[in-house]
Design a protein around this nucleic acid. Structure first.
Lengths: 151, 151
DNA sequence: CTCAACTTGAGTAACTCAGTTAAGTTATCA
DNA sequence: TGATAACTTAACTGAGTTACTCAAGTTGAG
């Protein structure tokens, strides 16, 4: 039950692009240095985000990357689905990538206990991440309350 | 962002044991057949659950496995943490296995945007799974509402 | 004292993750 | 127009994980 580095780097890269939204292009090297992401790996990530229509790139000496959708309209859920695949913890409760379980004794029945529990989890994750926008991410400052939980 | 087969099988095995709680021992072969779990793999899972104090086993001809904690006191969260490790989607928001991010530019600061979002997710997952008990799992019948979502 | 069960550890094929390498293509500016 | 600094694309790799399988035990009821 983990998100990949790809998603984490992707979010941090988009955060950087959000901070310069409508201002200027950022070179991958610049993003990589500021967010401490290996540049060649970052490349792959930006490419995927480009194919998904979230960022655009310009080549040449004054080239670079820019966010092309308003930060308010891009959610963390969008980003993670592009880079990590569906949010659902098991395929049989996925909304975007449903797959029937093979070899599950409940697959042919009208209910499944595990599906029941996992469905709730999926809904909760999706509800949070599909409402968490890049602009909110960019606004986050000192945390108070439940984060920084150290233990 | 996936739970492993191990967790899924583990839950289904415990479900089977829940149905015979305080009644009789179940042989691994019996559990494996009814829940369609490869017996040798199931073995490993039951062993882990035994070490975690959830089940007990008897050897010999009339041996088998039994749940030793009341189904009402065992949660899906417990089980998944035993079989899959911490629930948190990234280590820096884990309550049970916190680890500082290496090489994150925010690691030394007093806030982190990604941590913020992921912390919410962790709390939501934990809240659901730490309240979902085996007895509830065993009671689940025909689903109505948000499950069986097919798409 | 045997046989059916559990116990333990080691092994493995397939896959995924987190990058790296290399060989391009484009666009700007001198 | 040509050097150069950027992006583009695909192939490759080493380490680790997943989902098992195999083999050689140990235990205890009958």
């Amino acid at each position: 039950m983990k998100f990949s580095k790809k998603s984490e780097y992707g979010l941090r890269a988009l955060l950087e692009l959000t901070l310069h939204y409508n201002q200027r292009l950022l070179r991958r090297h610049e993003i990589g240095k500021r967010q401490r992401i290996p540049v060649e790996f970052l490349e792959q990530i930006l490419l995927a985000l480009k194919r998904a229509g979230l960022v655009a790139s310009h080549r040449g000496v004054r080239g670079g990357y820019a966010l092309i959708k308003p930060p308010r309209e891009v959610t963390v859920g969008n980003v993670i689905r592009v880079l990590d695949g569906p949010l659902a913890p098991i395929a049989c409760v996925s909304v975007t990538a449903y797959q029937k379980c093979r070899d599950c004794p409940y697959a042919t029945k009208s209910y499944c206990p595990v599906q029941d529990a996992m469905g709730e989890v999926r809904d909760a994750i999706a509800h949070i991440l599909d409402h968490y926008t890049l602009s909110r991410l960019a606004r986050s400052k000192k945390v108070g309350g439940s984060s920084r939980r150290h233990e």
